[in-house]
Nucleic acid binder design. Sequence first.
RNA 1: GCCUCCGUGGCUUAGUGGCUAUAGCGGCGCUCUCGUAAAGCGCAGGUCGCGAGUUCAACUCUCGCCGGAGGCUCCA
Length: 638
Amino acid sequence: MNKIKISFPDGSNKNYKKGITPKEIVESIGPGLAKAAIAADVNGQLVELTTLINENAKIEIITFDTHKGQDIFHHSTAHIMAQAVKRIFPKAHLTIGPSIEGGFYYDIDVRPLKPEDLEKIEAEMQKIVDEDHELIRKKVTKAQAKKLVKDNPYKIEMIEEFPKGEEITYYQQGEFIDICRGPHVPRTSSIQAFKLTKASSSYWKGDSSKKSLQRIYGVSFPDKKMLRKHLQMIEEAEKRDHRKIGKELDWFSFHKEGAGFPFWHDKGTIIWEEVYDYMKEMLRKKGYQLIKTPIILNKDLWLRSGHWDHYKENMYFTNIDEKEHAVKPMNCPGGLLVYKSNVHSYKELPIKAGEFGLVHRHEMSGVLAGLFRVRCFTQDDAHVFCTEEQLEEEIIKLINLTLEVYQTFGFKEFQIELSTKPEKAMGSEKMWKHAEESLKKSLEKLNIKYKLNPGDGAFYGPKIDFHIKDCMGRSWQCGTIQVDFSMPERFDLTYEGNDGKKHRPVMLHRAVLGSLERFLGILIEHYGGKLPLWLSPEQARIITVADRFVKYAETMAEEMKEQHIRVEVDDRAESIGKKIREAQLSKVNYILVVGEKEEKDKTVNVRTFYNKVLGAKKTSTFIKEIQKEIDEKTLPKE
RNA sequence: GCCUCCGUGGCUUAGUGGCUAUAGCGGCGCUCUCGUAAAGCGCAGGUCGCGAGUUCAACUCUCGCCGGAGGCUCCA
């Protein structure tokens, strides 16, 4: 295939040699047409021309596999949807309709939509696809553009906000036009498979004081097979939903008597405590102190910490002896009182104090989401007090600790972000610079890639955030390392230097898991409930073939329990098949079937929760093997 | 908090302006004593989220509240 055929939106076709530069194309057909062919059809594949023309590069075939290709696809589908909406609701005003990761949406000023409306819109979209309109790009002046959308106040507002000198273009397909930069697919028939996934609401420009709009979400693909695969993936993700698993496996629950406050059941508590024990041991090994501070403290403290002025919206209050108190939304003030209860020497630094503190935050009701977003949670918090010189070394230690923990839990995908000084900030320029440099240098020394978020730091100091990805590709902030210039000042923290004078320590806040509750939610979805053995609430279940083997099963269970293995016996008079099925559904790591053979040979017949039958093993061997698996915190392998 | 949708035994779920509101799982009882993803029969269990209104009559229609899902926004 040395030739490529380019079909332009005006209907003309031309053949070119492969490797031709866009400049040569422009010369051969004239600039007007080339500019119009933002996304042309090359042998049935999408090609984006404009940017390439500007860069004088070779033609690049853009397919759906590329980010850009998907972007074009989704955005064009948004246009088709908008056209369909306009046909069904002629009075609707379109606002903005971008492509997003994995799909698209369009915000439309129209009456609230019902599911059957979405079906109607989908049907109309199919018609538009079948009508096979060309998408034609045209350039207009500001005045012309305004005329085109004269009935739509949103579009007029957008056009008015257009930067001076930037060219305004619109796309037309059939009777429909929309102001848009593009690029787009050449014809509506390029969109072979799409689905509107949900309707919800949003605000014009994301501002809750502005008018409420209807947002319709959808996905689109070049062929139906890909759509089917996509829908299957969503189904799989739904199966892994930690809220569903938590209920089914009796791990935790939520009740209307306390919206957003999780209740941990016995099995959930086991998982919780395994995570807690692991973290606690880790901190002890790394030279941390562990402290516990009260949940309710009086107004004076919160005034001093600044929370009363800056965080009141999110706090819960109560009165004790007619004095105002607040439930802690953060652990630091309590930790600071612990620091202040002694005089400290430079020889003690760095002081690292960990606290698994239960904090309460009044979140808006609409944001609550299972364990991912709750109103009370346990932070694996710690505060490090050190000298400026120690800062970089301590940060490196914290980063290493965080990565080690994530690895243990089997999280390989994460993103690290460095946020620097915001406009409104406290502390001197010099301090900020030093702290930002320390964070940056630490990351670079460890050869860690990170994303820079300039101006995104807290007012009291810069920070590094760790985001881990769950099975649905959603990214959750877990770990954080924050430098704090504010608290040491507010609480007048000091240490005695070797010069005999008082100095101000640097304070670091850090969390690795962030919130134990949220982290467990992520963990559950990551593993779809099939947890690593060391975390699993039920590590093994012994299933008896018939009643006369119950005694043998119980002896074995005793033996395993003595070795701290969490094992249960299913001695019900049910069929083996049923008992195995139920054990599988309750995500028990090892299913041990015992009957005549096993009793005679002192063995167990092993099957894993990945449905692998490992066969008969000596009971003693099995115990040794899984003890090793527990101790080494081995990750499950399918 | 705002918008859309939802709320029926422990769980999943059918259904209707009017007689005693489905069914499956689970639970309990009996039978079977069984070899790797659901044995058979029987029984119990629901003021249809809560409150008010419309109506001769409301689980069903309307409104308010509570809770949930998705989104806006916020965030660990």
